[in-house]
């Protein structure tokens, strides 16, 4: 289990190789990579700045990862999230979940990104033609996270 919050880019191949190095019990590895889009609705985006809450961000990502590990039999997991200024096409976030079998790795990876989107203290400030605009939280993200709620 590991979480990292960093300004610099990450190498997906290198991260996954490190996560599974020396392991022969992993049969499935699912990854999610989030990228910066150049459009927000109808507005063109020149770039964005990701603000976060140092200290709480790491704690909250660790809580999300621990919850995934409590719900699924994971062999390894990783969350890497960037902050600072990013441009369209840049990588923002990497979630990876490894398990002996694919079902758990698929579900856990989906859970990691859905939960971190509604919990990890990050805020996007987008650069639009009308000036900088704070991104509003989406109800669709709450709904995506809510489907993982235990009833």
């Amino acid at each position: 289990m590991a979480v990292r919050v960093q300004r610099e880019d990450f190498d997906v191949g290198a991260e996954l190789a490190a996560l599974t190095r020396g392991r022969t019990d992993i049969g499935a590895l699912t990854t999610f990579v989030g990228l910066v889009r150049d459009m927000a609705g109808d507005a063109k985006i020149g770039g964005m700045t990701l603000e976060h809450y140092p200290g709480m961000t790491e704690k909250e990502l660790a809580r999300v990862e621990a919850e995934a590990n409590a719900r699924w039999p994971l062999s390894a997991s990783l969350i890497v999230h960037r902050y600072g200024r990013l441009e369209p096409g840049d990588r923002i976030v990497l979630c990876a979940a490894a398990s002996p079998h694919r079902e758990a790795s698929f579900e856990a990876c989906h859970f990691l990104i859905d939960w971190l989107k509604t919990r990890a203290p990050f805020w996007k400030l987008e650069e639009t033609d009308a000036g900088p605009q704070w991104v509003a939280a989406k109800e669709a993200d709450d709904a995506a996270a809510a489907r993982w709620s235990k009833t």
């Binding site: 976060h52 971190l116 989107k117 919990r119 990890a120 203290p121 990050f122 996007k124 991104v135 993200d141």
Partner: peptide, 10 residues
């Protein structure tokens, strides 16, 4: 005590 709007990371 941190006070902030709904988060928008990921």
């Amino acid at each position: 005590i941190a006070i902030f709007p709904p988060v928008t990371g990921g």
